[in-house]
Amino acid sequence: FMRQKIDEDMMDEIEEILITSDIGMDTTEKIMNELREYIKDNMITLPKNIKKGLTDIIIRLIDKGDRNKLSDKTPLVIMMIGINGGGKTTTIAKLGHKLKEEGKTVMFAAADTFRAAAGEQLAIWGDRIGVNTVMHQEGADPSAVIFDAIQSAKAKGIDVLICDTAGRLQTKKNLMTELEKMNKVVSREYPEADRETLLVLDATNGKNAISQAKEFNEVAELTGVVITKLDGTAKGGIAITIADEFDMPIKYLGVGEGMEDLEEFNAEEFAGGIFNE
């Protein structure tokens, strides 16, 4: 935006910024078309006046109003799902910490019974922030963990139950079916609870995230996404494509490995972040 005039070179440069922040090819094209119209309609001639238009276009794609916020009804059951290593367990710790600070009672369900020491990882977080974790042995049926956790949460009158699940690639059919089963247990055992099903998306991920959103949404009716690892050099632009293509709200941003490193989503800031160095 420091150029002298708006020309094709500048447009190419903007396109490059969009592509290298992992915004999908179709969304990039859509943004570029809207930008050309914006420039024409507003008779913009100075490069420095482009940025606002561009950010506004992106904000329109990702701003879902109130849907960008987590439900504040209780009891609430949150399922944290996503591919391997994206940051589910850590996000649960951060979110649990945040909800506790807000005065809610929180419980964790360690329904990742597959990955080595996944339950221990969650339980250590639980201890650190003062939240109980319902845990079974490694290899146990994850749905059974959820079942037990629900009974315990009900008995103790817990406000928010957050369920950790094993990482799974969206192409693994049996693992996706397992997720469906866990969801059924929640619906059946806890119909009065409000629900959030959050897809944890790693900001470093490229276009594969589109298929993650599609496939997980099909088996689990997502209510939103959390984008993690934004403290690194990745921009997480693929989330813009996902918010647009699936009308999916982004709820939180992960910006570090500590329990405080969770931010509420702000469309303006996120859109602006794409163009920051």
Binding site: I19, D22, I83, D202, N205, G206, K207, G232, K235
Partner: peptide, 12 residues
């Protein structure tokens, strides 16, 4: 390196 990484892979 995670095969799912996007453009950021080169930075890392």
């Amino acid at each position: 390196v995670d095969a799912l990484t996007g453009q950021d892979a080169v930075n890392a």
